[in-house]
């Protein structure tokens, strides 16, 4: 791997991150005369003189007493120290603490979803590719159309209604004590699995079909490549051809998709989490929105952008590892 390429990519990523940070800082300030407006307490019975003093104290407390440029520098400085801001919730918890609390729970859903989607998707996709034209393949094509057209949250609502509320196969909504009573015991893990089952099923149906489709297409496309035909002509068995040559090369677009979906891992489950009351980053963001908790909202946005950038960077580097033509000959731009 070309060292220069790596360094260039990293620098570029940092540059984009700086732009995103700046956008993040300015968005809540657009069109607002006094950004501290939201933080002032009501005047109640206070005289105007007293109230002005209170307003000054509030501004000082939340850091609005300095110029915007200084606030921006302070913001950047805080970022360097890993401080994404302080939430407006009672008790003023730090944004990073809140994210750290909720992130693992979102990852439980997303990573399991990705794992199941890729696993079953690839299994089904290769099977369909190998039996092209037969019923498995046809079913895949139809399923693909259906799952693209049906939003995932609609499926989630249906599953919630039937499997949750009506037939009670799974809990209809997440047990509120799930997070607090978690103690790594087998029973607790089982309870998490039981509560997570419906959201994961709802999310993964679309994912399975999608990965199956990609795999099928990749496999078919690659199967027609010269080197595969050569291998088969050489008399290598089907299985060897399949797994040693076809699948490994067909993995490239899958890797790309995976990399791209890293940021979707966290942001994408917002609606599903809301439907099932799952205590993850999605519901955290929605409650921040409902309570106008701007530091928390912008902190989460910055975090998600950072994750997306990181995902892109890693994907690029992995890609250049897997496919040397990228840096040597073809070039990206």
């Amino acid at each position: 791997m070309n060292k220069g390429y790596v360094i260039k990519r990293i620098l570029y990523t940092l540059f984009i991150f700086l732009i995103v940070t700046t956008l993040n800082f300015f968005i809540p300030r657009i069109g607002v005369d006094d950004p501290a407006e939201r933080y002032y307490p009501p005047q109640g019975n206070m005289s105007d003189v007293e109230y002005n003093i209170i307003k000054d104290l509030t501004r000082k407390q939340y850091g609005f007493d300095v110029s915007t440029w200084q606030q921006y520098l302070r913001y950047l400085n805080n970022l360097l120290h890993g401080d994404l801001g302080t939430s407006l919730q009672a008790g003023s918890p730090k944004v990073v603490d809140l994210i750290a609390d909720r992130l693992p729970w979102t990852l439980v859903l997303s990573v399991t979803n990705m794992f199941i989607s890729v696993l079953f998707g690839m299994l089904y996709g290769t099977y369909a590719a190998w039996h092209r034209g037969k019923w498995a393949d046809k079913l895949l094509m139809n399923a693909s159309t259906v799952t693209t057209a049906l939003p995932a949250f609609f499926l989630a609502l249906l599953f919630s209604l039937y499997m949750g509320f009506e037939w009670e196969w799974f809990p209809a909504y997440t047990d509120p004590s799930l997070v607090s009573s978690f103690d790594w015991s087998l029973e607790a893990i089982g309870r998490v699995a039981k509560n997570a089952a419906l959201p994961i099923i709802a999310m993964s149906i679309g994912g399975i079909v999608s990965y199956a489709q990609s795999t099928r297409n990749s496999v078919i496309a690659v199967s027609n490549e010269d080197y595969v035909v050569t291998a088969r002509a050489k008399g290598l068995g089907t299985k060897t051809v399949m797994y040693k040559h076809v699948l490994r090369n067909a993995l490239l677009p899958i890797v790309t998709s995976l990399g791209m979906s890293v940021s979707g891992l966290i942001g994408g489950a917002v609606v599903i989490e809301q439907i099932f009351n799952w205590n993850g980053m999605g519901t955290l963001f929605l409650t921040a929105n409902n309570t106008n908790d701007y530091p928390l909202m912008m902190g989460i946005m910055l975090f998600l952008s950072g994750v997306a950038l990181l995902g892109n960077l890693i994907t690029d580097l992995c890609y250049s590892l897997l496919d040397p033509r990228v840096t040597v000959g073809g070039g990206r731009r």
């Binding site: 696993l119 309870r191 039981k194």
Partner: peptide, 19 residues
Amino acid sequence: LKLGALLLALLLLCTACAT
């Protein structure tokens, strides 16, 4: 891959024994 699928099925069974 088959092993992965088996593990998953096991986890699903776990859900049945949650209290």
